[in-house]
């Protein structure tokens, strides 16, 4: 059989490497790719794609039964939940401070500190802390989280166009990483990275969340935009070269196909299996378009996605 010669592109750029954790805590580095996803023959992918597991600071009232039964009692306690997530194989714990949302319990800095502290004491994994995505509340609870987590190099999210300053300044002061989140739009993604860099956050302390569309709900937009960002990074654009984080679980489980068991066509098949597939397919697709961290919800999805990453990372 004749040998097939693989076409090899010479890229000049690479994705920035960003480290989370350390100082007595496990650390993880994401990014650093010098090629498109998993083209091991072309360039290097020095760091494994990370699987983060989402933990919330209050028991979720709107989660699908299959999610609730997979986790059980730990849902009432973020520390126990994080510990269980670590047992299920999480590389990173994402703590969503959902109770701070004005439409939830509108909790403030003190509750945020307590929740972050619980998670940090329960596990030695690197941590990402997300606010409720309401600009004012994000500023309040993330500043509190930042203080408590000083020394643990967590990622604080999200910095958005309207409120990136406070969070970025806090992250600089306490030595954390920020997550820059923009609605699915490539020019805005780059612009926010520029703005955040401009006020002094080093490029190795920025992750970006270009907004995840779930399978059937804009996945193809996320996919192509992330691919374009990744290509621009490889072409040497430092302001698009931030490692990408995708909130897959949140988006996949928001959709009817994952949530609803009744009143849907029989041809949709088994609900439990369908909802898992929804999360897994969304995650695996985005990993193939350049995601560096996928945030998941279901333990089974963690297992499947991790096994897939193992195969994709092995250079055969």
């Amino acid at each position: 059989m004749a040998a097939v010669e693989m076409p090899v592109e010479k890229w000049t750029g690479k994705v920035h490497e960003v480290r989370l954790g350390g100082e007595g805590r496990k650390s993880i580095v994401v990014g650093g790719e010098t090629t498109l996803p998993f083209l091991h023959f072309e360039g290097s992918i020095p760091n494994r794609i990370a699987v983060a597991v989402e933990v919330q600071d209050q028991e979720p009232s709107d989660w699908a039964t299959s999610l609730v039964s997979a986790w059980g009692d730990v849902l009432r306690d973020p520390g126990a939940w994080a510990k269980k997530a670590a047992e299920f194989g999480a590389d990173i714990i994402v703590l969503r401070l959902r109770s701070a949302h004005p439409e939830e319990r509108n909790t403030g800095a003190a509750e945020a500190k307590a929740a972050v502290d619980k998670v940090l004491s329960a596990v030695d994994l690197p941590v990402i802390v997300l606010g409720p995505e309401v600009a004012e509340k994000d500023n309040e609870v993330l500043v509190a989280a930042s203080e408590v987590a000083r020394g643990s190099r967590v990622a604080l999210g999200n910095c958005m166009e309207k409120n990136y300053r406070t969070i970025a300044a806090t992250a600089i002061a306490d030595g954390h990483v920020v997550i820059a989140k923009t609605p699915i739009e490539i020019n805005l993604a780059k612009q926010l990275n520029i703005l955040i860099s401009d006020i002094g956050v080093p490029v190795d302390a920025i992750l970006m969340d270009p907004t995840t569309g779930a399978l059937g709900y804009g996945l193809e937009y996320s996919y192509s935009m992330m691919e374009r960002l990744h290509l621009a990074a490889l072409q040497g654009d430092a302001m698009t070269a931030m490692p990408m984080v995708c909130t897959v679980g949140e988006e996949a489980w928001r959709q009817k196909e994952a949530r609803v068991a009744e009143g849907v066509p029989a041809s949709w098949g088994d609900h439990e299996q369908r909802s898992l597939l929804w999360e897994e397919f969304t995650a695996i697709s985005l990993i193939n378009s350049g995601a560096d961290i996928v945030v998941l919800r279901h333990p089974k999805a963690v297992e499947v996605v991790k096994a897939t990453i193992d195969r994709l990372m092995s250079q055969v």
């Binding site: 490539i186 020019n187 805005l188 780059k190 612009q191 990275n193 520029i194 703005l195 860099s197 401009d198 374009r228 960002l229 621009a232 072409q235 654009d237 430092a238 302001m239 698009t240």
Partner: peptide
């Protein structure tokens, strides 16, 4: 179309 446009493309 060599580098991606962003409003702040001149800044850095």
């Amino acid at each position: 179309n060599k580098t991606l446009y962003a409003h702040g493309y001149l800044r850095l």
